[in-house]
Write a protein that binds this DNA or RNA. Structure first.
Lengths: 253, 253
DNA sequence: CCTTGAGCTTTACGTTACGTCAAGGTGTAA
DNA sequence: TTACACCTTGACGTAACGTAAAGCTCAAGG
């Protein structure tokens, strides 16, 4: 019985490319090549392929298989033993990986559940506290005690969903800001979109929106070193200034 | 603190090439490039690299890591979970491989020790028995009891080395026969070489060689269905006839 | 006889995460 | 100035094929 590439491939359950590759690396040569250049395989090649596939199933490399089937049953057992220890090493490595991944997953899950429950509340409290410490004084001075109290109240009363929304909004602002800076133009559409998003974000915190307060806050981003650093390290040098310029232009429209 | 490629590489325990590669694929860009084209990394890059290496330790691909550290902590847990199941699949596969390799090793070991010791003897006995059952009668009839008895004696007395020699010879005959058939000419050099090899093989078994007996045995290959089938299935349709023709021509030279 | 579609060929690039030259510029200490 | 370590980019190699692309061959149907 003679087989062409596809026939043998189907018979053995491999691809035609595989057979051509095996020919190329001299692992399995066709019995002959017909006048049109077609590869023709015979019974002997079928048997040899079976052998090859058997060893391949064991995970051996083709080069090793080459030696195994060309050298008359020389060091088969030794080869298998070596392969075996390699497999064991691989499995040990995998075991470690799996363990580490599981640990990491646990800690991630822990973080999530913490965030889901008490930690979320605790986190909000801590944030208010920090805000108070960091910016409370300035904002209270500039915009009055009312605004910051209400903002704190709002944070306390926010659900997790609301909180996540506002958080993702602020994230989006940072991301877009970083890109918009590259254009260099605070009047550009992108920059103005950011200013609009910043307004949305602000309205989560303040009871009412005013262009003046928005522009004032923007100016504070540049005047106050802590705001400046925050934006500059998050989005690159000059981010605070750029944001201020964008907001100022936005509020004058 | 600023680091050049080698400095950072040593600090983090990776190669310089790795850092250049990470730069190339936009996984970790240097903070800046100095006037001579040197890559300069800062503290932020050190931290990012730590992150990257952490995930790399877990066996994640660089592309995945890329997404994990660029996307703001979005689907970290999901990614890890997916990776985890992949690792489990890999381990299951490895387990199977190991099991199969062990089985194969066992059977190899079995074969070796068996072949080395009793099995070789037992095998020879069994072969004599089979030969006796299959062909004993005919051969005894045609060539007398003497020849088959001596052949059996010879097999019993053969060392493993001798046995392997004669086995490989008979294998070689089959292989060459299959090829020679394609030429279609039993008088061809190849065919005659096969006849010569067949004579050598025969002389392993018979005490003396005679052209008549050789030609007679060849004829039997065609007359007796069992011989015929043996050669035809091993080497293709018409193999027994071809062999007979070649041998007949050989014995008449 | 011609067309069509399936099957064949070779050539060559892509895959993963770098290792390893090779050729040439840079920084610094003796 | 020279030596020597370190930097750069460019390119090939890795394992075992997958996947086009471009062109030739075969068998069957109109």
């Amino acid at each position: 019985m003679e087989y062409t590439v596809q026939k043998l491939a189907q018979l053995a359950g491999v691809s035609g490319r595989t057979l051509r590759y095996y020919d190329e690396i001299d692992l399995l040569k066709p019995a002959r090549v017909n006048s049109s250049g077609y590869r023709i395989y015979g019974q002997e090649e079928v048997n040899k392929l079976q052998h090859i596939l058997f060893y391949r199933e064991l995970g051996l490399g083709l080069e090793t298989i080459q030696k195994l089937i060309s050298t008359p049953d020389f060091n088969r057992y030794e080869t298998l033993k070596e392969h075996h220890t390699q497999l064991l090493r691989k499995r040990a490595h995998l075991d470690k990986l799996i363990e580490n991944v599981e640990k990491t997953m646990d800690s991630e899950k822990g973080r999530i559940t913490m965030t889901d429950k008490e930690k979320f509340e605790g986190f909000k409290d801590k944030m208010i506290e920090e805000n108070e410490k960091k910016y409370g004084e300035e904002i209270r001075e500039k915009y009055g005690a009312d605004i910051i109290n209400r903002s704190n109240q709002k944070l306390k009363g926010m659900s997790q969903e609301e909180y996540q929304k506002v958080e993702s909004l602020s994230q989006a602002i940072l991301t877009k800001l970083e890109k918009a800076i590259e254009t260099g133009d605070p009047a550009s559409d992108e920059a103005q979109e950011i200013a609009e998003m910043h307004k949305q974000w602000l309205m989560y915190w303040w009871h009412a929106y005013s262009k003046e307060a928005h522009a004032g806050l923007a100016q504070m981003y540049v005047d106050d070193d802590r705001f400046m650093k925050y934006y500059d390290t998050k989005c690159g040098k000059g981010a605070a200034e750029f944001l201020r310029d964008a907001i100022v232009i936005y509020t004058r429209k």
